Simulated scan of single mutants.
Amino acid sequence: MTNRRVFVAGALAALGPLAGTRSAWAADAFPERPIKLVVPNPPGGPSDIVARFLAESMRAELGQPLVIDNRPGASGLIGTAVVANAPPDGYTVLVTSRSNHIVAPLVQQGAQVDPVRDLAPVGLALRAVGILATPAKSAWRTLHAFIAQAKAQPGKLFYGSAGIGATNHIAIEQFKALAGIELVHVPYKGSGPLITGLMGGEVQLALLDFSSAQAGLKGGTLVPLAQTGSRRLGSMAEVPTLAESGFPRFDPSFWIGLAVPRATPVAVIARLNKALDLALADTQMKARAQVNGWELVGGAPTALEATIRQDMADFPPLVRRLDLKA
């Protein structure tokens, strides 16, 4: 019996190093097939635009295509649930943002997914400058003029959002409180329809991601009233920041990152994180960032984890105060 115990113990000891390298083997082999990049928003929005650029850049490092899968609905929770319930093998990755990761679960009653609990961060891709915009057919050209009109006609002007609980929904609610104005909310099903509605004059104000607003700004159908960056973008040097417009504490920033199912092996997450970092360091990606008003971030998964932690400290009390419910 003693000899048998010694034999078993020796065998287990011999297997120990092999077991310890199993995750390393998995990372070396990963990926062996295409990766699904789930965008929980319709085509044309900021997350979709970023996803398509990342898919192109990350393919070089991963050696496999990244296939975009748009799954809009429920303020991003449908696509989020698709990833949360997927096998934790790294082949289903979520393009996540503050809207679906933080705000939507707080607003949507009976949400079946908890992104903070069910997903593991891969990395923080970028922070994006937002633009407070109005239709070109409107009468005002400054934020002060818009506020003056809203005060003169309380409840008569409309603002749009990408959906109830979307980042730009809560941001405009913050803005209303700070400016002391009353606007009527019109929720759209994503950023693409929102931009179309704003261009058409269905609503008079919206907070848009800089990149998704470009077509309207360049085409002359949208007019920028203010930008959310800490300093003016070089490409929009004539547009004041919110701080310059009298709102120094109003920071409705956009962020976009990647996440996977919570039980995904650490080595696989590290492989995806490396591919993300290399994509963000790519010269072409940097040029796109300059054009689109993005601040590329990257770094370890802890960067996204820290951002999520800060948002979870800030947003629940805000949502309760605004009594936002879908």
Rank of each mutant, 00 (worst) to 15 (best):
A152V: 08
I269M: 15
F30V: 04
G63S: 02
T264W: 05
G216P: 05
S212N: 04
Y91Q: 08
R249Q: 03
E244K: 09
M58L: 08
L225I: 10
L233M: 06
A162G: 03
F146D: 03
G197V: 06
G73T: 05
G123R: 03
V266C: 00
L318P: 06
I131W: 14
L272Q: 01
A13H: 07
S230H: 06
L276E: 07
I172N: 14
I269W: 01
D69E: 07
T196K: 12
V116Y: 07
F247I: 07
M236I: 04
F53R: 11
R4T: 14
V93T: 05
P88K: 04
V291D: 12
I195M: 11
A104V: 08
R141A: 05
W140S: 05
N70F: 11
L157I: 04
E244S: 12
A313V: 15
L278A: 12
A13Y: 03
P261T: 00
A139S: 00
Y188Q: 08
A81F: 07
R33F: 02
D209F: 00
I195D: 01
G90M: 12
D118V: 00
A84N: 05
L217A: 15
S211D: 08
G229I: 00
S235R: 09
S191M: 10
P42N: 12
G110V: 14
A86Y: 11
S230A: 06
W294S: 09
E305Y: 01
D28I: 06
A263R: 11
A243W: 04
Q284Y: 09
P31I: 01
A213Q: 01
K218G: 13
E32V: 03
A281K: 10
Q174E: 14
V83E: 07
T196E: 13
P105M: 12
T2G: 06
A226T: 15
N41G: 02
T92I: 01
N292E: 02
A81M: 05
A289L: 06
Q153R: 10
S253N: 03
T307F: 10
R321T: 08
R288W: 14
E61A: 15
V82W: 00
Q290T: 03
P154V: 06
E295Y: 10
S97A: 15
L278P: 02
A104N: 11
D48E: 02
L198H: 00
V83W: 11
A13Q: 15
Q112N: 09
T228P: 13
P31V: 01
R321G: 04
L12P: 12
Q174R: 08
A281S: 14
K274Y: 14
R52C: 10
P72Q: 10
V266H: 05
S75H: 01
R52L: 05
H185A: 15
F254E: 01
A19F: 15
A145N: 15
L205P: 08
A313H: 02
L225R: 04
I131E: 12
P42G: 12
L322Q: 11
N70P: 07
Y91W: 03
I269L: 14
D282I: 14
A306E: 08
K137T: 14
S75N: 06
L106K: 01
S57Q: 07
T142E: 13
K36P: 00
A166H: 01
A60K: 11
A136N: 13
P265Y: 13
L37R: 11
Q109C: 03
R321F: 09
V129Q: 12
V319M: 13
A29G: 08
G197C: 10
Q108K: 02
